[in-house]
Design a protein around this nucleic acid. Structure first.
Lengths: 201, 201
DNA sequence: CATGTTACGCGAATGAAAGGCGAAGATCAA
DNA sequence: TTGATCTTCGCCTTTCATTCGCGTAACATG
């Protein structure tokens, strides 16, 4: 893609801000006012140049039809649903509405995945703290040592580490004050496996 | 999909609110009243335009049949450069080539940001483990308690928690076996601040 | 140094789309 | 059937993008 001039960069940034803020693009007149340009022809030429260089798209003769081309902001991210909160030992608490979180493709599992927000510090020993987002791949089986969302006895939904031992299933809390729990395999239904963590400071 | 005009955006926002609040769509007359439009033809034309642009769907000739098209609002992700590895006490070790990591927009700072991969468990007390990716916002100042990438004495580049105390700067390792270090402010140059963490299992 | 190119700028004229009106016709649910 | 609601038609005004001709400045190149 062709490089921008200083002026073009300024205008592109302005477009970005404006669209972000208003939800629609500025008119040529508004752009001109922002940069103290008295002629719309000047603005128009700038937009044409930006279009030629591939940074924006425009519908012909349509009001406020400038669109930013998602170039460097690559689309390699998935919008996963934020289903709710999870705390060790408590059922998943659904979150209102249908919020989504964008997650890098490399973090999300290949199957259907979703996101839960961690409540409390019960997973602190696995370096997961209160407020972290865990990306969960929706599947019914787990390997030893994986962190799973498990339905225990048809009641509790918990986040634990999963081990299969001597025909039993061991669910290991990531908290030193809690004891590991042993179950018969038919008592434990794996709901999903944690494949990633995100934290925002 | 075509972008919206100012008016179209207003109406779309109203539809959104109304449906959210009532559970059903407004009638044309209600929309018109909200925007002080005396002709339903005007409202109808707006809805047609919104439909044409792909933001709503309508059943033909059905009352209150406006439906919002699930936001294909492609939440963008940024491709940030993976600059290298960082371990407490060691200089940043550059990674070969120009790898990038895609990071959700919500995790990345507003300014220029980059990604470092953590080596070793020296930050374990801050729930950052070996192999984690830290998203670093490139700036030169930090507030108390922020985790910073700091250049100390023009030599070492380290990842520490940052505190300003009594005209001195305290760099606090996130590891119980390491002592906090006190410096004169001119000995410490903040390179960036950690704004996010990502982990892949 | 002259010269072609490109970015940047002006103002005016033109016409298309958006936004608006009222009235009449069509359709659906009760 | 009837009342509420959606659809269509013609016509108007406002907003906006486009085009044209012309000009200046910066810059690379022969």
């Amino acid at each position: 893609m062709l490089p921008l001039t200083k002026r073009q960069r300024e205008i592109l940034d302005y477009l970005n801000d404006f669209i972000q803020q208003h939800g629609y693009a500025p008119s040529l007149e508004e752009i001109g006012r922002r940069f103290s340009l008295s002629s719309l022809a000047t603005v128009h030429k700038h937009l044409s140049n930006l279009q030629e260089k591939g940074f924006i798209r425009r519908a012909w003769n349509r009001s406020r039809s400038v669109e930013l081309v998602p170039s460097r902001a690559s689309v390699r991210a998935l919008d996963l649903p934020l289903l709710g909160y999870v705390a060790a030992g408590s059922p998943i608490e659904a979150v209102a509405g249908s919020e989504t979180i964008s997650v890098p493709e490399t973090l999300a599992g290949k199957r259907d995945s979703y996101v839960l927000r961690v409540k409390g510090n019960s997973m602190i020993d696995e370096q997961i703290r209160d407020g972290d987002f865990v990306i969960v791949e929706d599947r019914r089986t787990a390997d030893n040592g994986e962190m799973v969302i498990a339905l225990v006895g048809g009641l509790d939904v918990t986040l634990k580490k999963f081990y299969r031992e001597n025909g039993k299933v061991r669910l290991q809390p990531a908290n030193p004050t809690m004891q590991p729990l042993m179950f018969d395999p038919d008592q434990v239904a794996v709901q999903g496996v944690v494949v990633g963590v995100m934290r925002k400071y």
